[in-house]
Design a protein around this nucleic acid. Structure first.
Length: 829
RNA sequence: GGGGAAGUGGCGAAAUGGCAGACGCGCAUGCCUUAGGAGCAUGUGUCCAAAAGACGUGUGGGUUCGAAUCCCACCUUCCCCA
């Protein structure tokens, strides 16, 4: 290129420089007008693809963490579109729930008003991101048109016995002033606010998710990260064991026995004590008068400790005797009954049989309280001496009556048979997972559609009276009881069955109810007669690619699977799983940690103002693999910004100006082949959410193009094709600039309706390749050879290299390894 | 305590059995500019003045012609569970 030409390019660049602000506005308006993102249920010749990203809580500004999530999901959906699918990529708002309600309280406005404002703002920001949502399918879960169907499903669940009301211990968050499901308690604290959870006894509504425990464990047919599957498996916590009854009939109380749950019935002859959870219902009646004071005091102190503290292996095991004894029906042993807080009322039966010889915690406990330790499963070569620590592995049964000599694995079966035959207990399966507690003592949620009548009891609201609307003007500040209790016009109603005065249920539903089926509503979002039409849903379901954060592994993702199976059993859907493939994006961090609303919110608006949406998108996708998250740095934005300017510059050059220099076949073929290789690689990388390497590949290619332009030798046709490929591959990541350049390079609207560039396999490799020559595994020479050279050809050239000769001189070549187009390794000695 | 994921330049990272550090940031030098949070060019793992060479992917071992990649042990960080 001559200096005059360079000046021309530069002056052209000055006049028509890349200015994202106008250009991005222009194209977003054009996309809206043309209905580019409207999704039809079916399109001739295109298979459907449901690309779903977890919808947000509208609790404030969307920050760069949201951008990271939603831009990645959008880029992947756009990629699928350009791969030839008819893509549904919808968006909505998970608008009920504590974040919105708390924010509203803080700002002293009604949650409905607050939510409306934040949704408007979020919608604006989603547009600013350049996302390709079809807004005609938007869902807002706090609108009666949506939550009506929550109520509908609740009633269906009641009919089927999946929803039930029960009294029992619940998790109470004193800061959020509501109960929580077990899944919403992390490390003994409220998942939302971090307050330590209290136990209370309350009457609440539950969903029988435990009925589906075994089915939920079966994840063979879903393509999810192993990590998430493992977390769900552990959460469900299936353990096979036995319930076994110890006799307490000597006390003359109503209960004749204490039922313990154990996974090690083979060790039952080694029981030397029983431990009850402090909350166990028999504690009171079994406490003897001389122990009453100590037990009372102990229960009080246990109540102050959280579950996490109580079960920590670090913490000293404590307990007090009740003064009562229980008889082991197998051997007639009379063993003491203690109360100990390392036993939880909520797991198993709330009572454990203490086998110190074969359980670590029991061993520690027995040592501390000087209780006998009796070996009943012998370690290999055991000489009858005392154990230093609990022996957990299988072994030979000893001190086990008629079962002596059996291997304990067999003993487990034989003893189970015996206790079942004698009626002392039975094999059973215990799960860690509890039923899903659905009631919340908060205002901003779906009213539970139930009426309590003095005569008829608990009466479901008839479906034709739905929705039970949430009163707009109610008192909504949390007081520890449901705010709706104070709204008399809401509470007081008539019994749907007998017509007498009755009272409404005033608790609202957990918001995970909303997100358990929203993916179905997106397929038929305006249906007034049903939550969705099954035939319409089946156009899309199950979701082909679900994208979202790992934090929902045992909350939303477990609830949704349960919900789908429940709907299937009600005949409402006919598939087993809601989400076929799951991909978790990583977490966006700063030096201060995770970016969230609470921690360095980092709004994106100022960045967009300075750099433009496409640069922010490209930057975020370039940080690293989407699945690994990214570390924010203020400096990094310059790279993508410069690069998009260079793409702009390259694509705006007139290819005809290349015609003045004769075509150099080597250069021309290099550009052509580079384009084919890039097109092939892009599909693989996009599919794997490796947007960073797609961008790196594009950068490498545009660097090559810039060099080739300066050096000359590329034909205008090759150049134009190269630019076209670059724009098409970049389009899912930077939708605005590519649309503008697509038009400027003489193409028809829209680039986003095009297919990704095709490639020919034989053009994806360069004409010449670098072959590495190693001697004994050490690099000694590099050869430029025609692609697909034979081993003999390569070896001949290699042996002519002076450095190769120097290292093989006087030595024998013992072995020669050839990897085509890559490497020749000579083993000498 | 158990389980899982990860550990590569000053930084984000690439390479998943075959040239370690692609691509980018930052930095350095030079050019251009009234100016620059602009642009362009060149350089940038360590040792060595440089070349040649050697060393180099948390640590130590192993498998292999060849290991960042596979195996074993350990250390560190993060996540989940107790």
């Amino acid at each position: 290129m001559t200096s005059t030409e360079r000046q021309q390019t530069e002056s052209q660049f000055e006049v028509d420089r890349y200015d994202p602000s106008d250009l991005e506005l222009k194209w977003r308006a054009r996309w809206d007008e043309s209905g580019l993102h409207k999704t039809r249920d079916t399109v001739e010749g295109k298979p459907n693809w449901y690309a779903l990203v977890m919808f947000p809580y509208p609790s404030g500004d969307l920050h760069v963490g949201h951008w990271f999530q939603y831009v990645g999901a959008d880029a992947h959906a756009r990629f699928k579109r350009m791969e030839g699918f008819n893509v549904l990529h919808p968006q909505g708002f998970d608008a009920f729930g504590l974040p919105a309600e708390n924010a509203a309280i803080l700002n002293n406005i009604n949650p409905a008003e607050f939510t409306r404002e934040t949704i408007e703002n979020a919608r604006r920001q989603f547009r600013l991101m350049g996302t390709s949502y079809d807004w005609d399918r938007e869902i807002i879960t706090c609108e009666p048109e949506y939550y009506k169907w929550n109520q509908y499903f609740f009633l269906k669940f009641m009919e089927k016995g999946i929803a039930y009301r029960a009294d029992g211990p619940v998790n109470w968050c004193n800061s959020c002033q509501t109960t929580l499901a077990n899944e919403q308690v992390k490390d003994g604290a409220c998942e939302r606010c971090g307050t330590v959870i209290e136990r209370r006894n309350m009457t609440q509504w539950y969903f029988k998710i435990t009925d589906y425990a075994d089915e939920l464990l079966d994840m063979d047919n879903i393509d999810w990260p192993d990590r998430i599957k493992l977390m769900q498996t552990n959460w469900i916590g299936r353990s096979e064991g036995a319930d076994f009854n110890f006799d307490i009939s000597e006390y003359g109380i109503e209960a004749q026995h204490i039922t313990t749950f154990t996974t090690r019935i083979d060790t039952v002859y080694g029981v030397t004590f029983i431990v009850l959870a402090p909350e166990h219902p028999l504690v009171e009646s079994l406490t003897q008068p001389d122990q009453a004071e100590a037990v009372q005091a102990y229960i009080a102190s246990a109540a102050a400790a959280s579950e996490v503290e109580r079960t920590s292996t670090e913490r000293e095991k404590t307990g007090v005797p009740t003064g009562s004894y229980a008889i082991n029906p197998l051997n007639g042993d009379r063993v003491p009954i203690l109360v100990g807080d390392y036993v939880l009322a909520s797991y198993g039966t709330g009572a454990v049989m203490g086998v110190p010889a074969h359980d670590e915690r029991d061993f520690v406990f027995a040592t501390k309280y000087d209780l006998p330790i009796r070996v009943v499963v012998a370690p290999d070569g055991w000489d009858g001496s005392d154990l230093e620590e609990a022996y957990l592995a299988p072994g030979a049964q000893v001190n086990s009556g008629e079962f002596d000599g059996l291997n304990s694995t067999e003993g487990m079966q034989k003893i189970s048979d015996k206790i079942e035959a004698e009626g002392w207990g039975h094999r059973t399966i215990s799960y860690k997972m509890r039923d899903w507690l659905i009631s919340r003592q908060r205002y901003w949620g779906t009213p539970i559609p139930v009426v309590y009548c003095d005569d008829c009891g608990t009466v479901p609201v008839p479906v034709d009276q739905l929705p039970v609307e949430l009163p707009r003007e109610a008192q909504f500040k949390p007081t520890g009881r449901s705010p709706l209790i104070d709204d008399e016009s809401f509470v007081n109603t008539t019994c749907p069955r007998c017509g007498k005065p009755a009272k409404r249920e005033t608790d609202t539903m957990d918001t995970f109810m909303d997100s358990s089926w929203y993916h179905l509503r997106f397929t038929d979002p305006h249906n007034d007669d049903a939550p969705f039409d099954l035939e319409r849903a089946k156009n899309w379901m199950p979701v082909h690619r679900y994208m979202g954060g790992v934090e929902h592994a045992v909350m939303h993702l477990l609830y949704s699977r349960f919900f789908n199976k429940a709907l299937r059993d009600l005949g409402i859907v006919d598939f087993d799983e809601p989400y076929t493939r799951l991909f978790n994006q990583g977490i966006m961090t700063t030096e201060g940690g995770k970016i969230s609303k609470r921690n360095r919110p980092m709004p994106a608006d100022p960045l967009v103002e300075r750099f433009g949406t496409d640069t922010v998108r490209t930057y975020l996708m370039f940080l690293g693999p989407w699945g690994d998250g990214g570390m924010w740095s203020d400096e990094g934005m310059n790279g993508p910004s410069r690069w998009l300017n260079r793409v702009w510059d390259l694509a705006n050059r007139d290819p005809e100006r290349l015609g003045s220099v004769p075509v150099d076949n080597a250069v021309d073929s290099g550009i052509l082949r580079g384009g084919h290789a890039l097109s092939k690689k892009a599909v693989v990388d996009f599919e794997a959410f490796k947007f960073n390497t797609v961008i790196a590949g594009l950068m490498e290619y545009t660097n090559e193009l810039a060099k080739a332009w300066d050096a000359g030798g590329v034909s205008p046709a090759t150049w134009s094709e190269a630019i076209e490929r670059t724009l098409l591959i970049l389009a899912p990541i930077a939708p605005h600039i590519t649309e503008e350049l697509w038009e400027r390079t003489g193409h028809e609207f829209s680039i986003h309706s095009q297919s990704l560039p095709s490639w020919k396999e034989d053009l994806t490799m360069a004409e010449t390749v670098t072959i590495v020559v190693q001697i004994n595994g050490k690099l000694r020479a590099r050869l430029e050879m025609p692609a697909d050279s034979t081993e003999d050809q390569v070896a001949a050239v290699a042996m002519a290299e002076s450095n190769v000769q120097a290292h093989t001189e006087g030595k024998q070549i013992r072995k020669q390894i050839y990897v085509p187009n890559k490497l020749l390794n000579l083993v000498v000695g």
